[in-house]
């Protein structure tokens, strides 16, 4: 194709180093070797000197620190120190947050043993037994049960008669109201009936 340029790379032999560059390479190699040798010597010296010293120091501390700590503890009131310096609320709250107390009590506490030792009479003395009994009576509708099981023929007949007469009252009222185009009667009376009070 006209105008196309093709680039081709050819290996070129490296030029010979100048004397100055050769000197620089030689110096660098020498210095590097010296530094490596110094580091190695330092490591050897540390291993040979520091470790025995550290062992001696640690042994001394192992003997001295407990004695010193005991002496310090004897001379200060740790309780007061903790009370004054430590935020116990944070610690307790943190502990409570991290614990499931309910599960802990269920697993670790023998509730039956506690109940066995408890003063049940004192508990019962504080329980409102009679309101509780009245609540049960109301909830199961005991009066209705008794009424249903004991209402006699006479009582049923009386209630039936009252109901039928009240129905007759209503019937008469409705007939008259329809005849007179009245829309109902005002039957509310003052006072509260004894049957509902």
């Amino acid at each position: 194709m006209p105008g196309e340029v093709i680039l081709v790379t050819r290996p070129v032999p490296a030029p010979a180093p100048t004397p100055l560059e050769a000197l620089r390479v030689l110096l660098a190699s020498t210095v590097g070797m010296a530094a490596g040798t110094a580091a190695t010597m330092a490591a050897l010296a540390e291993q040979a000197i520091v470790t025995p010293v550290a062992n001696v120091v640690n042994a001394s501390l192992d003997r001295l620190v407990p004695v010193i700590a005991d002496a310090v503890i004897e001379r200060i009131d740790l309780t007061d120190l903790v009370l004054e310096r430590v935020d116990l609320h944070r610690i307790v709250e943190s502990a409570l947050d991290s614990l499931d107390l309910t599960d802990l009590v269920i697993q670790r506490v023998d509730v039956n043993a506690i109940v066995a030792e408890a003063d049940i009479d004192a508990v019962i003395d504080r329980v409102p037994i009679l309101p509780l009994a009245n609540y049960v009576i109301d909830e199961i509708n005991l009066p209705q049960i008794i009424r249903d099981s004991t209402s006699g023929i006479a009582g049923d007949a009386l209630n039936t008669m009252r109901r039928q007469s009240a129905g007759a009252d209503d019937l008469v009222s409705r007939i008259v109201d329809r005849a007179t185009f009245r829309k109902g009667r005002k039957l509310d009376a003052p006072g509260t009936p004894e049957s509902l009070s």
């Binding site: 209630n159 007469s165 049957s195 509902l196």
Partner: peptide, 15 residues
């Protein structure tokens, strides 16, 4: 139960 709504209302002629 059927008597409760009646209580306190003015009674009619028949009763």
């Amino acid at each position: 139960s059927y008597a409760v709504p009646l209580q306190g209302n003015r009674a009619g002629f028949v009763s």
